[in-house]
Design a protein around this nucleic acid. Structure first.
Lengths: 243, 243
DNA sequence: AGGCTTATGTGCGGTAACGTACAGACCTGA
DNA sequence: TCAGGTCTGTACGTTACCGCACATAAGCCT
């Protein structure tokens, strides 16, 4: 397994052709990503893009009345700031650190140079964006058709996939914001999972005890997203054992 | 206003640089798009991309149990087959003709040549994809937080924006499939709108009588999608009067 | 005209999630 | 050790939507 502190703990940086990675390396700046930090505000300018390594970032949409919903989640499998190379200039949603850790950031201009000049970066980023689109679409479907219980399982598994351990720091209140449901709804759903022995949590720490158990309860949405991501961006070989 | 039968009735083809459009023109094949036709099946291969002119195509996700939900809608503002140039190869969802009409199709290989060789096409398509992403994200939020009434307004307005007339051929049953709700729910919501004098419908024909009235009832989601689309891809000048 | 199909309207009980309110548990720091 | 904040558990009435069942109505074919 790649070192947790290396930029290559991020999958995109890892699978980038050697030459392109070497060019970027001197410009990658390791930054702390504390819980709750807002990386981008909706409509804000895109100075930097971020390659998460040990953190997880949520793409949130916040509505006029303050209600919110998570649209997608990005960890060491991806990049924050897709709108930059898509040509949008600004993000249409907010990006918030959902799980503290680190990321490597890169000036937008530098990424664009690489994106415009060399095929490797372009194709890689576009493939990742395609996976991100799948995740968003699946979120829409899940919001419509599945219960809070199922969505909680999906959310836990998606987070787990992006973390080195089986423990996450996250209050039920925050999870509720992500899922766009009431805090009490999460309490109830989480209570069931705890009762079934699948997780253990206390005051903002959730430990997953039985991952297969979660997978048995989750709706199809999780597997769809997972399968499409794996198809588009095969995980680094040294992680295949963990599957 | 551009001729309904011209490829340039499609906005993307219209704003494409002259030289690139000329190159594509001989390869654009006008095809009939009958109501209900499945353009792509989920997971299918992408032989052609489609530039709708007078038709509307829905991107649908169909679940294991048969329930469905519309993720986005594409008309003369866009292109069907984004996954091709994103590198996915296959679509993760189904594309169905939601309103009959015509489109121009192009072999995937030809689009890719243009995409890889000339900047105009690449940047244009990426910007459109960014708008599509916004639409998907907003669909996810709308599914979570808004009532069937509001969603119906949004859906009608999005469809209306992509049609030359104010009449659409669409049963309540089909609308229900798109929104992922019960047919009876649509009946009720549509009844309210009809009662308020905003629309008139009978047996699969819906006529919008009072567009501003719909806009007054719709949730913020519609305007967000509309604004972002206009920002990323300004509509052709000869349509600006209609705003 | 008559019968079939398809589209729409309506009503009723069931349920999942909501809004609100509050109580207990735990953690931290004075 | 006590106070105050944060996190979690629980309870209750309300609402929106669901699932089903059935009635009505409009078009279509022979």
């Amino acid at each position: 397994m790649t070192d947790l502190d290396s930029p290559q703990y991020n999958h995109l940086l890892k699978v980038l052709p050697e030459a392109e990675y070497e060019r970027l390396l001197p410009h990658l700046e390791r930054v702390e990503m504390p819980l709750g930090e807002v990386i981008y505000e909706s409509g804000g300018e895109l100075r930097y893009v971020y390659f998460p390594t040990t953190c997880i970032v949520s793409l949130l949409y916040v509505m006029e009345n303050g209600a919110s919903a998570e649209i997608a989640v990005v960890g060491n499998d991806g990049i924050i700031g897709v709108a930059l190379f898509m040509g949008g200039g600004s993000m249409p949603n907010r990006a918030v650190v959902q799980s503290a850790g680190h990321a490597f950031r890169l000036r937008g201009q530098l990424l664009m140079q690489e994106f415009n000049r060399y095929e490797g970066m372009l194709h890689l980023l576009l493939r990742y964006t395609q996976a991100l689109i799948t995740q968003m679409a699946q979120t829409a479907v899940c919001n419509r058709h599945h219960s809070v219980d199922q969505q909680l399982c999906r959310w836990l598994l998606l987070s787990l996939d992006r973390l080195p351990s089986n423990e996450l720091t996250m209050t039920q209140e925050l999870i509720a914001n992500m899922l766009g449901v009431r805090r009490e709804g999460v309490t109830e759903a989480a209570g069931k999972l705890q009762h079934a022995g699948l997780i253990h949590y206390s005051r903002g720490k959730i430990t997953v005890l039985d991952r297969p158990g979660l997978e048995a309860r989750v709706c199809e949405c999780y597997q769809v997203v997972r399968a499409e991501s794996d198809r588009l961006l095969p995980p680094p070989e040294d992680e295949l054992i963990a599957l």
